[in-house]
Amino acid sequence: MELTVNGETYEAKEAESVAALLEEMGIGGRAVVVVLNDEVVPASSRSARGLREGDRVDLFRLVGGG
């Protein structure tokens, strides 16, 4: 399944949910916020939230800033 993750094309191997995508990308344990097609997906509903071909996923994390 082809997705756009953080602006780049990403070929998801097996992941069919947001939670599975994070696992697949190796960032399952990290504090991130997920935006699916411009909509925030709360952490509690990541497992339930399915992905479709062509979805845009943006993943944000905290970095240092002033």
């Binding site: 953080n6 916020v33 994390r61 800033g65």
Partner: peptide, 22 residues
């Protein structure tokens, strides 16, 4: 303490600067 928000890069192991802050 102020922090910023960025999209995660594609490199598998980014340094998590803020982990210890939490």
């Amino acid at each position: 303490v102020t922090v910023a928000l960025r999209r995660i890069g594609r490199s598998p192991r980014e340094d998590d600067m803020l982990g210890p802050l939490g």
